[in-house]
Deep mutational scan, measured.
Amino acid sequence: YKIYPYDSLIVTNSISVKLPKDVDRTRLERHLSPEEFQEVFGMSIEEFDRLALWKRNDLKKKALLF
């Protein structure tokens, strides 16, 4: 996945969300650098992957990456 800054990946309720063209809309968190991922989620990507799907989705919603 290509890395993008968190600010360019957050999704708000506005209709005209302009995400970069090559971003996987269903896995926005994968486009964060490991350092920024840790900062946003408070855990590593590996720890995040071990969580239940509902928990990952809940965290993504709170981080505006859903």
Results as ranks from 00 to 15, higher is better:
Lys21Asn: 13
Arg25Thr: 10
Phe48Cys: 01
Pro34His: 11
Asp49Gly: 07
Gly42Met: 11
Thr12Arg: 11
Lys21Ala: 15
Arg27Pro: 01
Lys21Arg: 11
Asn57Ile: 15
Tyr4Ala: 02
Ile3Met: 06
Ser44Pro: 14
Phe37Ile: 02
Asn57Pro: 01
Phe37Trp: 03
Ile10Asn: 04
Leu32Phe: 01
Glu29Ser: 01
Leu65Glu: 02
Ile15Arg: 14
Pro34Gln: 14
Leu65Trp: 01
Val11Thr: 12
Arg30Asn: 04
Glu36Lys: 05
Lys2Arg: 08
Arg56Val: 04
Glu47Asn: 10
Leu51Trp: 02
Thr12Val: 11
Glu46Thr: 12
Leu51Val: 04
Arg50Leu: 14
Tyr1Gln: 10
Asp22Asn: 07
Trp54Ile: 09
Glu35Ser: 10
His31Met: 02
Glu29His: 02
Ser16Phe: 13
Thr12Asn: 09
Pro34Ile: 14
Met43Ser: 03
Thr12Cys: 12
Leu28Gly: 01
Phe37Met: 07
Ile45Trp: 09
Phe41Lys: 00
Pro34Tyr: 11
Ser16Arg: 10
Gln38Ser: 12
His31Ala: 02
Thr26Phe: 14
Ala52Met: 08
Phe41Arg: 00
Ser14Pro: 14
Asp22Arg: 03
Glu35Ile: 11
Asn57Gln: 09
Asp49Ile: 04
Tyr4Leu: 05
Glu35Gln: 13
Asp22His: 06
Thr26Val: 07
Lys2Asn: 13
Arg50Gln: 13
Ser44Phe: 08
Lys55Phe: 09
Leu9Phe: 02
Leu51Asn: 04
Arg56His: 02
Tyr1His: 15
Lys61Met: 10
Arg25Gly: 07
Glu39Asn: 12
Leu65Thr: 00
Arg56Met: 06
Leu9Ala: 00
Asp22Ala: 05
Asp24Tyr: 05
Val23Arg: 02
Val23Gln: 02
Glu46Ile: 13
Ser14Tyr: 04
Thr26Tyr: 12
Leu65Asp: 02
Ala63Gly: 04
Arg30His: 04
Pro20Arg: 04
Asn13Val: 08
Ser16His: 15
Asp58Gln: 13
Arg50Cys: 11
Ile3Ser: 06
Glu47Ile: 10
Thr12Met: 15
Ile45Cys: 07
Tyr4Asn: 01
Glu46Cys: 11
Ser14Gln: 13
Lys62Asp: 08
Ser8Phe: 15
Ile45Thr: 07
Glu39Phe: 13
Arg25Glu: 11
Lys60Trp: 01
Glu29Arg: 00
Phe48Thr: 00
Lys21Glu: 15
Glu39Gln: 14
Asp22Glu: 08
Ser33Thr: 06
Val40Ile: 10
Thr12His: 12
Glu35Thr: 12
Asp58Ala: 14
Glu46Arg: 09
Leu53Thr: 09
Val11Gly: 07
Lys62Pro: 02
Lys21Pro: 15
Ser8Gly: 04
Leu59Ala: 06
Tyr1Met: 11
Ala52Thr: 13
Val17Lys: 14
Arg27Trp: 03
Leu9His: 01
Val23Asn: 01
Ala63Glu: 03
Lys21Ile: 13
Lys60Gly: 01
Trp54Tyr: 10
Ala63Lys: 09
Asp58Gly: 08
Leu32Tyr: 01
Phe37Thr: 02
Arg30Phe: 03
Glu39Trp: 14
Asp24Thr: 04
Asn13Trp: 04
Ala52Val: 09
Tyr6Thr: 00
Val23Leu: 06
Leu64Asp: 09
Asp58Ser: 11
Pro20Gln: 05
Asp49Tyr: 08
Lys62Gln: 10
Ala63Gln: 04
Phe48Val: 00
Leu59Pro: 00
Ala63Asn: 07
Gln38Lys: 13
Pro20Lys: 04
Leu51Phe: 06
Leu9Thr: 00
Ala52Pro: 15
Lys18Gly: 15
His31Arg: 02
Met43Leu: 07
Arg25Cys: 12
Ser44Asp: 14
Leu59Ser: 03
Leu28Asn: 01
Leu28Tyr: 02
Arg27Lys: 13
Lys60Val: 03
Lys61Val: 09
Arg27Ala: 11
Tyr6Ser: 01
Lys61Thr: 08
Lys60Pro: 00
Val17Ile: 11
Asp58Ile: 12
Lys2Ile: 13
Lys61Asn: 06
Ile15Ala: 15
Asp58Thr: 10
Ala63Trp: 04
Phe41Leu: 05
Lys60Asn: 01
Ile3Phe: 07
Trp54Val: 12
Lys55Val: 13
Trp54Gly: 10
Val17His: 14
Leu51His: 06
Lys18Trp: 07
Met43Thr: 04
Met43Pro: 00
Ser16Gly: 13
Val17Met: 08
Leu32Thr: 00
Pro20Cys: 04
Arg30Tyr: 05
Val40Arg: 05
Leu19Gln: 06
Leu28Trp: 02
Leu65Asn: 01
Leu28Thr: 02
Ile3Gln: 08
Leu51Ala: 04
Asn57Tyr: 08
Ser14Thr: 11
Asn13Ile: 06
Phe66Arg: 04
